[in-house]
Design a protein around this nucleic acid. Structure first.
Lengths: 205, 205
DNA sequence: AAATTATTATGATCACGCTCACTTTACTTT
DNA sequence: AAAGTAAAGTGAGCGTGATCATAATAATTT
């Protein structure tokens, strides 16, 4: 078993597909690692040759989900007239991708969403870094110059706070979360205007 | 076994003391429920007559800890000249109380810290409500009128974001967290000044 | 093609949090 | 004081996530 670079990739893919389906059907807690292994047609122990923990599987699924729907290509984001609107679109798009994982967000907060989550597989920037890069690019585009580290940290703090809220939001269509996103971004952009290093006036389009 | 209202309370106290010690000595994960039961001199199953889950024990310990050191009595809070200073003192005091539980904060975010955590034992207001009441009182005292639900929700969002950061803050004395608290409160109070319903000017002292 | 080496796969096994059918105890009723 | 009742205690046992010694397989060397 050595050529198996491809074989391994295929097995990993089977695990991910099985996990995605089972999590979606029965939920995270109700799905056992044995279930996943059986569905992926491997032994129970083999699963842990591919992922160190069960949680790592969700983290991977969540990361892939947001990575696939990159905000860069979202037309709503591109069409936004103001930074606030653009950020709102980015966050809304992110929440949409994360929706299937809403319930286990608290678990992800310790790993992929934490302020110091590094990208373990070396490739594929961490969830956080990718998101912040998108935010920084939008800020630049809308004439807010380069965001300071402090600004990015403040943004991320608000964002994680929103995620915690969202994870527990029981309103029918999570409309409470969207309202909170609105208020949060309003506060953040207001702060930005007062603290921007360079020209805070929106650029001409 | 019926008089045992007192007996029961005593047993619960023994469990809490044992858990507090073991958690402090060996950490949350390394402490098993069997360890706690043995230290409290009860059978392993009995423990679950008192607390539904292991996590409920930490939640209780954390709740007691912040309840004991109520911010109302903190002289630093009372002496603060501005709302920002007062809130900073409140948050710093809260973090000090929560310090032993810093590592398992993510777990608590689902329960006691979530935006809809109700107080299960009916008595002893939830962590969140107690904190927000203190914040509201300080805002009123410093001339910001009565805070809107939106303002409180924004505050709590920032606060939970800070807690997530803090839980993963590896800087030596967690000074990074304090800097973040400072920036966050600055942003929040700035927002408040622009959105306060009543006189935003600080009251005379 | 046989022997060797490097990977991957396996499933019995572990310790854990938690459950539950049952026992023990403390009090009440007769 | 004997019988009855309800609260509290017990520990074997369950299913879980994770581990690890071992087996199986594929490539490399001889």
């Amino acid at each position: 078993m050595r050529v198996t670079a491809q074989t391994k990739a295929a097995t990993e893919e089977r695990i991910l597909r099985a996990a995605r389906r089972l999590f979606a059907d029965n939920g995270y807690e109700a799905t056992t690692t044995r279930d996943i292994a059986k569905a992926a047609e491997i032994a129970s122990g083999t699963l842990f040759n591919y992922f160190p923990t069960k949680e790592a599987i969700v983290a991977r699924l969540a990361g892939d989900a947001v990575g696939d729907s990159l905000a860069d290509r979202d037309p709503t984001v591109q069409a936004a007239a103001s930074l606030e609107e653009a950020l709102f679109a980015v966050v809304a798009s992110g929440l949409r991708s994360l929706k299937p994982f809403r319930r286990h967000l608290p678990a992800l907060l310790e790993t992929s969403l934490s302020p110091l989550a590094m990208t373990p597989p070396d490739e594929s920037r961490s969830l956080r870094v990718g998101h912040l890069e998108a935010v920084a690019a939008l800020a630049a585009r809308h004439g807010y110059g380069e965001l300071s580290p402090t600004a990015l940290q403040l943004y991320w703090t608000l964002y994680t706070g929103v995620l915690v809220f969202w994870a527990n939001d029981k309103s029918s269509k999570q409309e409470d979360t969207l309202a909170l996103v609105d208020d949060s971004l309003n506060m953040f952009v207001g702060w930005l205007r007062e603290h921007a290093q360079t020209d805070p006036a929106p650029r001409k389009r």
